[in-house]
Design a protein around this nucleic acid. Structure first.
Lengths: 333, 333
DNA sequence: AAAATAATTGTAAACGCTTACATGAGTTAA
DNA sequence: TTAACTCATGTAAGCGTTTACAATTATTTT
């Protein structure tokens, strides 16, 4: 079953059928209806490969996401797919994990499948070592690349960011206003958005206290036990802190577990602020105050930018979306 | 850059280059090395569309998953992709959501992209109304379909199941042995595996008590508040229950929240068993006893079955993997 | 009514690969 | 030495589209 079968049955040439398929306006309404009817009748679908050969495009956007079980990323992917569909594009999703090698492999895979553009969801795609981002820059030489929550200065890479600096600045400032001075800052990795977050925290502390205690800035693997145990160790080691700002909700949950072990009252003895406003923030007890970074807005903005890029319009390479705090029971705001 | 450029530079015909690309053994070692070297040198990658036109295959498996933020599904997808890669197949993932319309659309999308097979991850793909599964059966007419945690009787559909019946049977039996007779059973939908689970529960209760109280079987949307509020309503309404078996961890968390509101001690006043042994089970307080359904084994088995199907071997249409209970602090086992 | 123009349709050449079949070069057997 | 065979390579015909260009038909203008 191919375009010839349709053209024969509809008594037109294959060119006309092709025009109908591609919505070319130079077809009379009558002919168009006839062809559509025949296509319907025969249950014809154009062959993607042949189509791709002709158009050199799949009409498909590749989406890469390090970890789809991360609720923030999963949400972003969901909204992005929805928006792409609205715009008539298909999408293929790859969950890459965080290993550089895998990210590189998946990116080549998508390129080799000739996607029309690539969306990298999450700062997990930017390595701290800048050389390791070469694979992204290279890809940007072939198709437009959208980067969510990361920034690379390249004319063919378009970045959509939440205002992480502002988020942690505000979070820290609110705590400082309550007279809480020793705020422990928990981060997982030195990604782009990670750095922004840390700078926001530092700036707020600096503004209020004129100095930052580096001991209060701690790196921690992204799971509950690691966070809990780190806090226990730090506390045993004599470090004093009355609040925790965590760059991911899961670390916030770890802080809650720590408070439980140490029988600290939340938020009286320990205030905790998480990040991403994920499901976890509602699961834990007490429920976690968390930064809401407006995933939906972020996703919509990314796709709309991409559409304009694919349409060869001039578009800024950087868009920032502001976010705010979802106040729950681990803080006394 | 195409196969002609390579053939020219390597001073061989395009047929020979093609043979090298496809690992055809009828090429002398010397020629093969020369061609490979040129391909490397030019950075040549075969065009998927042209390749697809010739081979009528993408070398790609389509994976569909209703909700990748469901940790069970996300895990399964991760392992499946890993296994496929091991076997030299690429994969494309679609997160469909639970709406039938979307599931149908994504399935057509994958078929139209000419994937070599389709893996449906999770019982979310089987509708209670059997007519609504026609789209899956139809797809199975075109490519092999793998179904995880669901069962459809069709020669071209291969099902890998966890033994949900056994899991809830065991869970209920353990509670009954402790003398807990009124076990509330919380489910979300009447999927295939949902039915299995319920039957396991009923069988265990029937065996011990010779009758099942249908009031103790309750349907509930899959979120924390809904579960909490349902239990509150039931309790206000006079229903007595000393244990909850939930078909998803998130409902188990809802039960914990309920206990908190009613100031019930866990597990003394209320035992709770979740399902899937997900991250949520470790987040909550107390941590949730949960059924571990061996996602990795399930995934490996699915892919290995698929490989044999694609290799035209005769394979059974149904494989069952047994599971067991991860005991934490919401039960007194 | 003829000429000019616009709208519609058709023809045929790509697109880059795979592969059946043909060819040619070595090897072996008679 | 030549016939029969094997192994390596090449030729050319598809695969199912898109689209520039040519051809035809319909419409408007004069």
């Amino acid at each position: 079953m191919n375009i010839y079968d349709v053209s024969e049955r509809a008594r037109v040439s294959i060119a006309t059928v092709s025009r109908v398929i591609n919505g070319n306006p130079n077809v009379s309404e009558k002919t168009k209806q006839k062809v559509l009817a025949v296509m319907e009748e025969l249950g014809y679908t154009p062959n993607v490969f042949a189509r791709g050969l002709g158009l050199n495009s799949m009409n498909t956007i590749g989406i890469m996401c390090a970890d789809s079980s991360d609720p923030f990323l999963a949400n972003a992917v969901y909204f992005i797919e929805r928006e792409l569909r609205k715009n008539g594009y298909d999408s293929f999703l790859c969950c890459t994990g965080y290993a550089l090698k895998n990210k590189q492999n998946y990116l080549s895979l998508l390129l080799s499948k000739r996607v029309d553009a690539i969306i990298l969801v999450g700062s997990g795609f930017l390595e701290f070592n800048k050389k390791d981002n070469a694979y992204i820059i290279k890809a940007a030489g072939e198709v437009p690349v959208m980067l969510i929550n990361g920034y690379l200065n390249n004319p063919n890479i378009y970045c959509t960011l939440c205002d992480d600096y502002q988020a942690t600045f505000t979070a820290a400032a609110l705590l400082l206003e309550q007279g809480i001075q020793n705020i422990l800052y928990l981060y997982t990795s030195k990604s782009y958005s990670g750095t922004q977050k840390m700078n926001g925290y530092k700036a707020a502390v600096m503004e209020k206290l004129q100095s930052v205690n580096e001991d209060l800035i701690q790196c921690c693997p992204g799971n509950i036990e690691a966070a809990r145990d780190l806090l226990l160790r730090l506390s045993e080691g004599g470090l004093k802190f009355k609040a925790v700002i965590a760059v991911e909700d899961i670390l916030g949950v770890g802080a809650i577990k720590y408070a439980k072990v140490k029988k600290l009252a939340i938020p009286k003895d320990l205030s905790i602020i998480g990040y991403n406003n994920s499901l976890l923030a509602q699961c834990c007890e007490p429920e976690l105050t968390s930064v809401d970074n407006h995933v939906e807005t972020l996703s919509i903005s990314t796709v709309s930018t991409l559409m304009r890029v694919l349409d060869c319009q001039k578009v800024p390479n950087k868009t920032t979306i502001s976010n705010d705090l979802n106040i729950r029971n681990t803080t006394n705001f």
